[in-house]
Simulated scan of single mutants.
Amino acid sequence: MTGYFAPKGGLPPQTALMTQRAVFTPSYAFIPKGCFSDIVTSYLPGWDKTRLWLIARPMTGFSETFSQYVMEVAPGGGSDTPEPEVGAEGVIFMTEGEIWLSIDGQDHDLGPGGYAYLPPGCQWRVKNAHTTPARFHWLRKLYEPSPGLPAPEAFVTHEQEIAISWMPGTENRWGTTRFVDPEDLRHDMHVNIVTFEPGGLIPFEETHVMEHGLYVLEGKAVYKLNQDWVEVEAGDFMWLRAFCPQACYAAGPGRFRYLLYKDVNRHAKLRGPGGFGR
């Protein structure tokens, strides 16, 4: 069975050392699992019996294209009006417990490993009708229409229904679970799962225009973020701005896996300070 780390909250004892691993830089941010305490949770209008850790949000110099929430819905909780932003699309990925999800009148039951794409303009609702908390990631982005391309349709699937696409020449040590066809240009974001078997690595410094959010679901590794090698483990979150160099070495002893966000398939906007693009 695949394991998915989900934070439980709480607070460290007063005897705990204050020094931890959190880092915020102009090129990346690293939020270790120890930061997911009760004191940094948030609440949302329209959501009952729900709290969340908001780990990425659009702001200059940080996450510019997306937001990411780690949701915790108590028994009986949920929302009939979850998304307030006109034009927003979303992805839900379940890590613990179960929820009932309705998308445009179609009902679905999601458990750990369940994945749902929520296109802009869809009507969706979510409820935890069980006796234990439900925990999931909710990623949001303003959809960018492109001439001649319709918006994607909603879909629901499960990680185990999709084979890992192993990178060529890696002896099946580094691969991606792709929930969307990379050649489907209707989609302007991908939320995938990246898997490294023990000994797998990214053998060069990836440097590219895509912004990333990486939440570690399982295992541990050392990850290069700009100029720094950082030890990471299940429950940690990394945000990388565009062109931040990255690499990875997963020494083991088990698999290293993370939920990956990236923006794709759209032109770079030609506007900015000083009137560019006007």
Rank of each mutant, 00 (worst) to 15 (best):
residue 5 F to C: 04
residue 6 A to C: 13
residue 7 P to W: 09
residue 7 P to E: 12
residue 8 K to I: 07
residue 10 G to L: 11
residue 14 Q to C: 05
residue 15 T to F: 09
residue 20 Q to I: 12
residue 22 A to L: 12
residue 23 V to S: 11
residue 24 F to V: 15
residue 26 P to K: 05
residue 27 S to M: 12
residue 28 Y to P: 12
residue 29 A to D: 12
residue 30 F to S: 04
residue 31 I to G: 00
residue 31 I to H: 02
residue 32 P to W: 10
residue 33 K to V: 07
residue 36 F to Q: 13
residue 38 D to H: 01
residue 39 I to S: 13
residue 42 S to R: 15
residue 44 L to I: 13
residue 45 P to D: 11
residue 46 G to N: 11
residue 48 D to Y: 01
residue 50 T to R: 00
residue 52 L to S: 10
residue 53 W to S: 10
residue 53 W to A: 11
residue 54 L to V: 01
residue 56 A to I: 01
residue 56 A to H: 08
residue 58 P to S: 09
residue 61 G to D: 09
residue 63 S to I: 08
residue 66 F to P: 03
residue 68 Q to L: 14
residue 72 E to W: 00
residue 74 A to P: 01
residue 75 P to L: 05
residue 75 P to F: 09
residue 76 G to R: 08
residue 77 G to M: 03
residue 83 E to P: 00
residue 85 E to V: 15
residue 88 A to C: 10
residue 90 G to Q: 05
residue 92 I to N: 02
residue 94 M to C: 01
residue 94 M to V: 04
residue 95 T to G: 08
residue 97 G to D: 05
residue 98 E to T: 14
residue 99 I to E: 04
residue 100 W to V: 12
residue 100 W to T: 13
residue 102 S to R: 15
residue 102 S to F: 05
residue 102 S to L: 11
residue 107 D to Q: 14
residue 110 L to N: 04
residue 113 G to R: 06
residue 117 Y to S: 03
residue 118 L to Q: 03
residue 119 P to S: 11
residue 119 P to R: 10
residue 119 P to E: 05
residue 119 P to W: 05
residue 120 P to I: 05
residue 123 Q to I: 12
residue 131 T to Y: 00
residue 131 T to I: 10
residue 145 P to M: 03
residue 146 S to T: 13
residue 148 G to V: 09
residue 150 P to Q: 13
residue 152 P to H: 02
residue 154 A to S: 14
residue 158 H to R: 10
residue 160 Q to R: 14
residue 160 Q to F: 07
residue 163 A to V: 09
residue 164 I to F: 03
residue 165 S to Y: 06
residue 166 W to T: 00
residue 166 W to Q: 03
residue 168 P to A: 01
residue 179 F to C: 04
residue 179 F to P: 04
residue 183 E to A: 10
residue 187 H to Y: 15
residue 188 D to Y: 02
residue 189 M to K: 09
residue 189 M to P: 03
residue 190 H to I: 07
residue 191 V to W: 00
residue 192 N to I: 12
residue 194 V to L: 10
residue 196 F to P: 01
residue 196 F to L: 15
residue 197 E to Y: 02
residue 197 E to V: 11
residue 200 G to A: 03
residue 202 I to D: 00
residue 202 I to T: 13
residue 206 E to T: 12
residue 208 H to Y: 01
residue 209 V to A: 08
residue 212 H to P: 08
residue 213 G to D: 02
residue 214 L to V: 04
residue 214 L to I: 07
residue 215 Y to R: 07
residue 219 G to Q: 00
residue 219 G to Y: 02
residue 219 G to L: 08
residue 221 A to K: 02
residue 226 N to P: 02
residue 228 D to H: 12
residue 230 V to R: 11
residue 237 F to A: 15
residue 238 M to G: 00
residue 238 M to N: 05
residue 240 L to N: 04
residue 241 R to Q: 10
residue 243 F to L: 11
residue 245 P to N: 09
residue 246 Q to S: 09
residue 247 A to G: 03
residue 248 C to V: 13
residue 251 A to P: 07
residue 254 G to E: 15
residue 256 F to W: 06
residue 258 Y to H: 15
residue 260 L to M: 14
residue 262 K to A: 08
residue 264 V to C: 09
residue 266 R to L: 10
residue 269 K to H: 02
residue 270 L to W: 13
residue 270 L to C: 01
residue 271 R to D: 13
residue 273 P to F: 00
residue 275 G to A: 09
residue 276 F to L: 15
residue 278 R to G: 00
